[in-house]
Design a protein around this nucleic acid. Structure first.
Length: 521
RNA sequence: GGCUGGGUAGCUCAGUUGGUGAGAGCGCCGGACUCAUAACCCGGAGGUCGUGGGUUCGACUCCCACCCCAGUCACCA
């Protein structure tokens, strides 16, 4: 019986627009989690994908004179998949809600729930704008004269229409949900998100309609083809349809992967993941996800990013300028995962130079230059270690322990800060040991070799510790210091075992790892 | 309006269960060094911890009131 795979998901992104750095942020976070767990020797499945159904997509397609399927195919191919490559995201699968495996799973799921008696038919009453041809939400409406409600888009009164819909018996799961969350206080993180969800559930749940008659672009109900599954009750199921739910050939695979270990979600969609989704799973008799983690929003100029205010930023605007690794590093290091974070070009520029160009990049550069100059480009053979050397080794042990603990609880900024602290220690160590002075004294060759060996070993460890966050730069560093074996095979457990670099190995000093970049504007 | 989170050095933010003189990074000022991407290293200046009360021997940390910002209030991608 193989060990269960560690299963990480992002939300599936709604393809209505092109991806911005908010989407990229989530995808990168998931990727870092994935890579870190792989560095623990675990088998990891990382899933992302796109949500492609719903009225908005259909009408956008129509506006572009295309069939919905052609439209979403184009968006996914031209925008959503490329952005993952741009960011070096190593997802194992990409689910699309228009795929057959998904539609089949969705139909199976709701059929099961209906058979179990969790779905019933009733009237849905709601404000409807004839001009928009859509049912409206309270937020879409303005108050007019008397009880009249006005559609924001057309400024005309809406009608109260009703249609027959199928409802999911959410209400009945209220107590079970409370009980589950009381027993699993880390099932929703961070704690503020947990509290919010619990108080929401305690305030009372009611049944929700899970189908639409007025919508065409979606998954049809097997028992009532006039209706399609409401987008949320379609989209959430991606987490199980992607890994084989509903496919009789894939039952073993499904059992090996489900339940999810981490569902990453933006805080705006927490409720769907922490209330509706677990209730659906309970109804279907499936295990619940171990954790739903709600991260914050990226703020630009103190506000949530917005296209209309021109603060929406495409990921490649940043990665083209600073590089992919810097993109990943910045968002993981600068923002407390779970809280909102401010983005500004100036802050990005400052951190890039302080941490990467002047910090890690310069450390690699000065170290490799000395090994090249003093030892002909060969990793030197160390002599006996002094207290300063041993202190550096101890610091590595401590940094690894602290970084690992932080990364495993998804506290990326702290995890990275621990590694950065070690980088600073190594820079300090070099300054104190003054290898350039040792080099001028023929009798101190052994000491010089020992110092530089310690520095190279430190770089070896740093390459491993930063590999999840900055895969490309670390691969280069790994090769530059002459390390043997594959970087991807290096584990966190073994990283602080001193002395892995082989003396005599060839180092190479290439161009700067993180070149300085002129400030624009 | 109800609820949630937040208001801590110029900027971005940390601050477990109240207790040695309130922290980090960046920026700024000074020093030292030269292996390195004018980088690195050391030191320094700088804050009545939103406002006003209260509890306590003692509160940024607890309680009350108020001000300001953000989000949310169920079918919102």
């Amino acid at each position: 019986m193989p060990q269960k795979s560690f299963y990480v998901t992002t939300p599936i992104y709604y393809v209505n627009d092109a991806p911005h750095i908010g989407h990229a942020y989530t995808s990168v976070a998931g990727d870092v989690i994935t890579r870190w767990h792989r560095q623990h020797g675990e088998s990891v499945i990382y899933l992302t994908g796109t949500d492609e159904h719903g009225t908005k997509v259909a009408s956008k397609a129509e506006a572009n004179d295309m069939a919905p399927q052609d439209w979403v195919d184009k968006l996914v191919a031209e925008h959503w998949k490329p952005v993952l490559e741009t960011l070096n995201v190593a997802n194992d699968d990409f689910i699309r809600t228009t795929q057959k495996r998904h539609r089949r799973g969705v139909q199976k799921f709701w059929e099961v729930l209906k058979e179990q008696g969790f779905v019933y038919q009733a009237d849905y009453n709601g404000p409807y704008c004839v001009a928009c041809e859509e049912f409206k939400l309270p937020g879409d409406l303005l108050e007019g004269e008397g009880d009249e409600l006005i559609c924001k888009v057309h400024g005309k009164p809406v009608q109260l229409l009703n249609e027959k819909n199928w409802f999911f018996k959410l209400q009945g799961f209220q107590e079970q949900l409370i009980e589950h969350y009381e027993r699993h206080p880390t099932a929703i993180a961070p704690a503020s998100a947990y509290n919010e969800v619990l108080s929401f559930i305690r305030s009372g749940l009611s049944d929700v309609s899970m189908s639409r008659e007025s919508v065409d672009w979606g998954v049809r109900l097997p028992w009532d083809p006039e209706q399609v599954v409401y987008v949320w009750f379609d989209a959430l199921l991606n987490y199980i349809t992607a890994i084989g739910y509903g496919d009789s050939q894939a039952e073993d695979a499904f059992a090996d992967i489900w339940p999810a270990d981490i569902h990453l979600v933006g805080k705006d969609i927490l409720r769907f993941h922490a209330v509706f989704w677990p209730a659906m799973l309970m109804a279907a008799g499936l295990p619940l996800p171990k954790q739903v983690f709600a991260h914050g929003w990226l703020l630009v100029g103190g506000e949530k990013m917005s296209k209309t205010k021109l603060t929406g930023i495409a990921p490649n605007q940043i990665s083209d300028h600073f590089g992919v690794d810097a993109f990943r590093y910045y968002f993981m290091a600068a923002i407390n995962f779970g809280a909102d974070g401010s983005f500004s070009w100036e802050d990005m520029h400052d951190r890039y130079h302080a941490d990467l160009a002047n910090g890690l990049g310069n450390l690699a550069s000065r170290s490799l230059a000395m090994v090249t100059k003093y030892f002909d480009g060969r990793v030197p053979q160390p002599g006996s270690y002094t207290n300063a050397d041993l202190a550096l080794q101890d610091e590595l042990v401590e940094a690894v322990a602290n970084a690992d603990a932080a990364m495993l609880r998804l506290d990326f900024s702290t995890g990275i800060a621990r590694v950065r602290g070690y980088v600073e220690s190594v820079n300090g160590y070099i300054t104190e040991q003054e290898p350039w002075k040792l080099a001028k004294d023929e009798s101190k060759q052994t000491r010089l070799a020992t110092v530089l060996y310690c520095v190279m070993e430190s770089l070896r460890a740093i390459a491993v510790l930063y590999a999840a966050v900055m895969p490309e730069a670390c691969e280069r560093l790994w090769a530059d210091i002459g390390a043997s074996g594959k970087l991807s095979d290096q584990t966190i457990e073994q990283v602080d075992r001193w002395g892995q670099l082989e003396p005599g190995a060839s180092v190479s000093k290439g161009p700067a790892l993180f070149p300085r970049i002129d400030k624009v504007t």
